[in-house]
């Protein structure tokens, strides 16, 4: 963008559009398997530490919130689960929603990961899928078939982050798109009421 000496709003937009179209036509895979795997190795290390720390309740959920913020593309996930209303929301509303949604995720998925207590989640491999990387991991519990966890990783936010988490094939992103959509309907489309509802859930 520094190539443009007089960046008018219109020219910037047109350049952006052209760049996006080019990127769409010939996607460049900046993020490779090894980089995606490195991110998730580190994330899984922190998750293992949290679930086997002996912490419970809000102390454990705080750890998960830190992990989410560090490794997940929380702003993109939040925008995506809110859907089109994100476009008309004010900055303050988006900030409040993203904050409440992150804590809600930490509580909800903190509980699910608690079930893996006593086991070690291990990264097993990574592969390119469409325009992102899928990093797979397993949690082995004695006497049971291993649980499968998969992280969808992308660098399209500008940093390597995961944007979805699949436990036994069930997508966090899809589940929360449906849930937050239902909550927003109940709140009559009012984002402030949705934020209050999110604070009570999870």
């Amino acid at each position: 963008m520094s190539l443009i000496s007089e960046p008018t709003r219109r020219r910037l937009l047109q350049t952006g559009l052209a760049a996006t179209l080019v990127a769409g036509a010939a996607p460049a895979f900046a993020l490779n398997e090894a980089e995606a795997r490195r991110l998730i190795d580190s994330a899984v290390g922190d998750i293992n530490k949290a679930i086997n720390s002996g912490k419970t309740g809000s102390a454990l959920y705080r750890d998960f919130e830190t992990i989410f913020k560090r490794y997940a593309d929380v702003p993109t996930i939040a925008r995506s689960v809110l859907g089109p209303p994100a476009r008309s929301a004010s900055k303050a509303q988006m900030r409040a929603f993203t904050g409440a949604f992150t804590s809600y995720l930490a509580r909800k998925y903190g509980k699910r990961f608690r079930d893996f207590k006593g086991s070690e989640i291990k990264v097993t491999g990574a592969r390119k899928v469409k325009r992102f990387q899928e990093v797979r991991a397993t949690a082995k519990l004695r006497g049971q078939a291993p649980f499968n966890v998969a992280f969808m990783v992308s660098d399209r936010s500008g940093r390597d982050k995961f944007f979805d988490l699949l436990i036994e094939g069930i997508s966090l992103l899809k589940a929360e798109r449906s849930e937050v959509g239902a909550m927003l309907d109940r709140a009559g489309g009012n984002i402030d009421r949705l934020v209050e509802d999110l604070k009570r859930r999870g």
Binding site: V129, R131, L166, L173, R177
Partner: peptide, 26 residues
């Protein structure tokens, strides 16, 4: 969602990521 995604995963394994929702595209 849970039943269907989990069932597809059991039956197809890896292929489930192919149907991942890509928030960046959207």
């Amino acid at each position: 969602l849970f039943y269907t995604e989990n069932r597809r995963f059991q039956l197809s394994g890896q292929a489930s990521a192919e149907n991942a929702f890509d928030p960046y595209e959207n």
